[in-house]
Design a protein around this nucleic acid. Sequence first.
DNA 1: ATAATATATATGTTTTATCCTATATATGAG
DNA 2: CTCATATATAGGATAAAACATATATATTAT
Lengths: 185, 185
Amino acid sequence: MSLEFAILGFLNYHPYTGYDLKKIFDSSVRHFWPADQSQIYRTLANLTERSLVQMEKVPQDDRPDRKVYHITDSGREELRKWVAGPAPLDEPRSAPLIQVFFSGILTDEEILQKFEGYAGIMRMILERYDQVPSQLGPFEKEITSPREHFFWLLTLENGMLSMKASLEWAESIIQRIKSGQVPQE
Amino acid sequence: MSLEFAILGFLNYHPYTGYDLKKIFDSSVRHFWPADQSQIYRTLANLTERSLVQMEKVPQDDRPDRKVYHITDSGREELRKWVAGPAPLDEPRSAPLIQVFFSGILTDEEILQKFEGYAGIMRMILERYDQVPSQLGPFEKEITSPREHFFWLLTLENGMLSMKASLEWAESIIQRIKSGQVPQE
DNA sequence: ATAATATATATGTTTTATCCTATATATGAG
DNA sequence: CTCATATATAGGATAAAACATATATATTAT
């Protein structure tokens, strides 16, 4: 599981609660690893069982007690081993590409609209990428040293470049449809 | 579920067995939607229950009876609705990017090796993309009309272009590491 | 006043996907 | 003669992820 290593990675920066982690995930790695709240809490419980993190209860009067999780030495070791280890292989899943694959059953007009839809979504995502580094989320406020920040930017860069490539792809297809280069049957 | 629409899409070309479908998946959409054998059989059972496909038993003497699945009218309708419908949003998950995100804990030398590893894998994948259209798999032998073939090529193109973008990204990072542009702490 | 949002955790259920194994037989390679 | 590969289906076990809901309180906005 990669989620558990992502959690260990963040706890290696600083101790956090599950609630903190959810916000941090959303403002930093969401673009390549979305995480569900319930999944984070369950993974924290699991990491605690395996002594890779330790829970510290911080009582509060007004709200539920905070459970602050600290990474342990063995947790740090596991994290290091995983990050330094071989690249986990990606099994990519893209539902939009399934639509593309079977869109031969649509009319060329429908296909054109479809790709214009894709291109629109991609342009929106690209715009959001441009804004990200300027809007300081919880992630930037709390944890990043220049070195950590640098690697975060690398992941943003990767997302942006891949998205740009896909947008150009969609645009070239729009051109091909308009100039009648799609085989009919 | 996108898998069920992919199956409907193939059965819309031609009736197939679960076994056929597994081979077809592996030789056509694997690069953006890998499918497990057991999952295909279970999904076929589920589609049958919902009357989107119909099973035809073809007895064989020597081997287990073939169960050939045919798409029904309502199955065709569902497929059309889904393919014509709005783009399903992609929630991308990339374990390698988690490694990148946290690789600040490694030495620059280790990071360099890591990215050279990534680049190597990507170059391999790109080479495979180049070979695909020439090696006729079960997919090309059995089902594609020029129109269907065209959309298949589009998905390959997308994979190739995204991979190329990521490779260039990795190579630019290698250069940055070599020229000491990675912040130290 | 009331509703929404933020803080904080937890669990039950379902879906999706992976892994492994079992059943049967035929063919071809070493 | 054995072992791998191909044909064909199926199900148990587990892991991963998504979806929904519950508890409790404080603050802010309408």
